[in-house]
Design a protein around this nucleic acid. Structure first.
Lengths: 176, 176
DNA sequence: GGAAAACATTTTAGGCTTAAAACAATTCGG
DNA sequence: CCGAATTGTTTTAAGCCTAAAATGTTTTCC
């Protein structure tokens, strides 16, 4: 039967983590509230952008996002690259690309050097439409963040970079 | 044919907004980068939470979120309330609730005073399972944000509150 | 009282999303 | 060189999600 408290000798190394030793459930309410607020902000802005894209251009957000990735890669990207960049599953990209090829916005071809790989590019039409949408999209974002000062923006950038790093580290701890 | 520049008399009132007058496209790259970083953080954390919920409890994130709303409302909520709180469409909630009733986690009844309204509550099983999951969930969040200092958390809370307010104001400008 | 507006929910049609399994092609190690 | 792992993509099954139209109910306001 284990003693309900650690031996005195073991406590020497535990003095600065006493809360754990005595099994006090730690209070993480602040982090939880932070996470909910982060999620709320993103959902709010994402919904607004989604609605405006639909209203103005009759396009969905995922299609816009995919085109945005390709606009930055004039030589095209592989499906895997796109999937990693967009942080969505492979199968998701397959379907998205299918519909965008169908509508004439994307061009897709099998790589010459590796027959597993599909390389996709924006077509002329796709690029033109994306540029038109992106210009307006940028003004929406500016408007949504309009009440933040330049310093606020800088501070948020810094803190979110730290958040991203922390989350990535935590994710890596689980899946090494 | 309009002159390509404003009349001198009109310029008197424009001196402090000259960039607009000369049609210089304003630079909103910083806000755009901020939005992408915000989105990345949320997607990263959301994906991690989704995966852990599935692995540990074989439950989806939307189901967990819905149960979380109900856990805070012992007397139940209407579908509209839930839909507003979760910031998802009404139809979405209908389906989600259907499946959770089916699995015995939710109880649903028509309001006595207004036959349009459906009131849903957690069942005993639903509450028990949610509490079990929520306890672990809180430690995941704490771990994901572990590298942020208490001050970072406070600063982020403040800046995200400002962001939320700004976005809501912008959304209201579009849909008054 | 009764038409019209407002409200709560469901239905519909289509697209998005994931996890996991299946398939295909390449690379690696012996 | 050849079997085994690895890599890139697609398929599958199920669920999530939205916008818009449809349905049923209540309130409003002549």
């Amino acid at each position: 039967m284990p003693a309900p408290w650690p031996a005195v000798s073991d406590c020497i190394d535990m003095l600065d983590s006493e809360t754990k030793v005595v099994e006090t459930p730690e209070d993480h309410a602040e982090e939880l509230r932070l996470w909910l607020r982060l999620l709320t902000c993103t959902t709010l802005i994402e919904g607004e952008v989604r609605g405006r894209l639909r209203q103005r251009f009759d396009v969905t957000l995922p299609r816009f996002d995919l085109m945005a990735q390709l606009d930055k890669a004039p030589d095209g990207m592989t499906l895997s690259d796109v999937s990693k960049r967009m942080m969505v599953s492979n199968g998701n990209v397959t379907g998205l690309v299918e519909r965008l090829v169908e509508s004439g916005h994307l061009d897709r071809r099998t790589s010459d050097t590796d027959r597993r790989v599909q390389v996709i590019r924006l077509t002329k039409l796709g690029r033109a439409e994306f540029r038109r949408m992106a210009a307006e999209h940028e003004t929406w974002i500016a408007d949504l963040f309009a009440d933040l000062s330049p310093k606020d923006v800088r501070d948020l950038m810094r803190l979110l970079a730290k958040t991203k790093a922390s989350a990535q580290k935590s994710a890596a701890r689980r899946r090494p």
